[in-house]
């Protein structure tokens, strides 16, 4: 397998920091695979660690934030494509997915493949739409409500009660215990991520997560379940362990079958003491802990690349239980001249 032709894969989300993006893990997965890949990093900010990590990316380009609009975004990708001849892009941020999905045909015309959900699949699992989503696909979810105005917080419909979570449209969630807290988080989240802001009932139980890859026809190509062992103050996993939870995987297969999800996603669920599962969030992309799945025997980044290129991928169901990841930080020594190149030329 290693003598195949080189493919060039561009990856975003190189922000391997305290609330990490998945890019670095995705790249490690690709490098561990049988793929003969050249890696192009796409970074939004000049200090994303992945830019500077030795041996990780072959080249990095800065790209404009999606909020700048599609024109600047596509222009920049076209420029990078011209220089690098991209075969695949794996986007890793929620906020950029909309553009990548919407313009996937245009990217394909440029010779760039993606393996992403359809716009409809992407839109219907938005946080503000979860109650309807749950109803449509028969998934149990905590009561939630999309809020447009902070005044609505003092008049939430029953049975919503404290404590609940208040969540930004794209990112960030805070647990709140009273109205003052709720209003202050509402203002913060709406200013940062726009409206609506979502209020979701807190459920007692253990948080379990599944990383899953759907082929777009209802088949689950890969799925690995994990329990977060320790959560940082930013709500991110510090350590996690793969688990054998048959019911959880059953629910996962069922969701993929009903939604015909195309691409990777992460299901965040709460398992209550009574053994009930509540879906609290769907992340429509590869999560940062994907390298645990690779370590447990399912190389999802590799499979995404193969599916993107139109290869047939045989579904895998086996993985090792009890594999762990422990996230650590490591001080990389860089030189100001590298920083200068990113600042002045936008490339390194």
């Amino acid at each position: 397998m290693s003598n195949q032709k080189t493919i060039t894969v561009a990856v975003t989300g190189l922000n391997n920091i305290d609330s990490p993006g998945p890019g670095v893990s995705v790249i490690r997965g690709i490098k561990d695979s049988g793929l003969n890949a050249r890696i192009i990093g796409l970074a939004y900010e000049n200090l994303e660690p992945g830019i500077y990590m030795p041996g990780l990316v072959d080249k990095t380009y800065l790209i404009p934030f999606p909020s700048t609009g599609s024109e600047a975004f596509i222009d920049r990708l076209a420029y990078i494509n011209e220089k690098e001849g991209l075969d695949i892009i794996i986007p890793n941020f929620d906020s950029e997915l909309y553009l990548f999905i919407k313009y996937s045909d245009q990217l394909l015309n440029m010779g760039i493949h993606t393996f992403l959900p359809t716009l409809k699949q992407f839109e219907e699992r938005h946080k503000d739409n979860l109650p309807e989503y749950g109803e449509k696909y028969g998934i149990k979810m905590p009561v939630s409500k999309a809020i447009q105005n902070s005044k609505e917080l003092s008049n939430l419909p029953k049975p919503l009660s404290y404590p609940y979570y208040i969540k930004g449209k794209f990112y960030e969630a805070f647990k709140v215990n009273n109205n003052n807290q709720a209003v202050s988080y509402f203002n913060r989240l709406s200013a940062k991520w726009g409206l609506p802001v979502v209020v979701q009932q807190a459920i007692n139980g253990t948080e379990v997560n599944v990383i899953v890859l759907g082929d777009g026809e209802g088949n689950t190509v890969s799925a690995v379940a994990m329990r977060k062992q320790y959560i940082t103050d930013k709500g991110k996993a510090w350590g996690g362990i793969t688990i054998n939870d048959e019911r959880l995987l059953e629910i996962t297969h069922d969701i993929i079958k009903k939604t015909k999800w195309r691409g990777a996603m992460e299901l965040e669920m709460i398992k209550t003491d009574e053994g009930e599962y509540y879906l609290i969030e769907i992340n429509p992309r590869i999560p940062a802990w994907v390298y645990l799945a690779v370590g447990a025997g399912q190389n999802i980044p590799e499979m995404v690349c193969r599916l993107a290129m139109g290869e047939k991928v045989i579904p895998v169901t086996e993985y090792e239980y009890g594999k762990m990841f422990i996230r650590y930080s490591w001080d990389l020594i860089g030189d100001i001249s590298d920083f200068e190149k990113i600042i002045i030329f936008g490339e390194l």
Partner: peptide
């Protein structure tokens, strides 16, 4: 001034 972590011209600028 370069503000670390803040997008620079490649990050934010849509050339008007």
């Amino acid at each position: 001034k370069v503000v670390e972590g803040i997008p620079n011209k490649f990050g934010s600028l849509k050339r008007l």
